[in-house]
Computed example of a mutant assay.
Amino acid sequence: MSAKSAEAFGEVPEIIPIYLVHRPSNDIPYATLEEELLGDFVKYSVKDGKEINLMRRDSEAGQKCCAFQHWVYEKTDGNLLVTDMQGVGMKLTDVGIATCKKGYKGFKGNCATTFIDQFKALHQCNRFCEILGLKSLQVRQQKPRRKVTVAISKRQPVAKKNVFPPTLKNTS
């Protein structure tokens, strides 16, 4: 999967790296470290998918996170979704991944597969989705089709022939 630059998109969200540290003389020999994020910590997309917060919809960072989710979803043909996006401004930490039931190209996510269906049903495109040229996920309602009336003629019933095979007579 590759991304093209879209100047109109502006600054992009960054998922900060987490480092694994080995501490051999400690009871717990491994720990993770990441950059300290200073400022207001915001959840743009939470793990259970149910919490909708205004910062997601009304902030530039929140809208870009939504567009990023949409982009990943589209580029993987609906098989993978980045979720649990949270952080300070454009710096995100501890994201989650939801994959289709069978996984995606050998990769299993750490979030429920139902998040993908929920995202598809609830996502509302924003200006950043448009800048990226993403297709709407909402199924457009089809116009109701005209009712077709079939005329049935009133013919006399046709006499049915015996459809069973004839019985064999014993000729011995």
Rank of each mutant, 00 (worst) to 15 (best):
R23G: 00
R127G: 03
E130H: 15
V12P: 00
Y19Q: 08
N53R: 10
K47H: 10
Q118N: 09
I16G: 00
D77W: 02
I152D: 09
D48N: 15
I97E: 00
W71S: 09
E7F: 06
R140E: 15
L137P: 09
M55N: 14
L132Y: 02
P29L: 05
L81H: 07
L137S: 04
G78A: 09
N79K: 14
Y104C: 07
K64G: 09
C129L: 03
E36I: 06
N162C: 11
A121F: 12
P157L: 08
A151W: 02
T167Q: 13
F41R: 08
E7R: 12
L80S: 05
F128T: 02
L168I: 14
L168N: 11
G96Q: 11
L134D: 10
K75W: 01
V42H: 05
K160R: 13
M85K: 00
V158Y: 08
V72T: 09
C129F: 02
P165D: 10
Q142A: 10
R140A: 13
V158G: 00
K105Y: 06
I152T: 13
L20N: 05
V139M: 09
I16N: 02
D117T: 14
Q69N: 07
V42D: 03
G10V: 04
S2C: 06
K147L: 10
S25L: 08
R146Y: 04
D84K: 08
I152Q: 12
V88A: 02
A98T: 07
P166Q: 11
V139A: 14
D117A: 15
R127N: 09
E74L: 11
D94E: 15
E14C: 01
S2T: 11
K147Q: 10
T171W: 11
K75C: 08
A31T: 12
I97T: 03
K143Q: 15
D84P: 14
Q124S: 13
A98Q: 03
Q63Y: 10
T93Y: 00
K50N: 13
T76P: 09
T149A: 13
S45E: 04
K4T: 05
T32K: 06
I116G: 01
G78F: 08
E14H: 04
P17V: 02
K105T: 05
Q141C: 06
R146D: 07
Y73Q: 04
Q156H: 12
T171K: 14
V72P: 06
E74I: 11
F41K: 09
L54H: 11
W71A: 15
Y30F: 15
K160P: 00
D40V: 10
N162F: 04
Y104T: 00
I97R: 00
V72L: 14
W71Q: 11
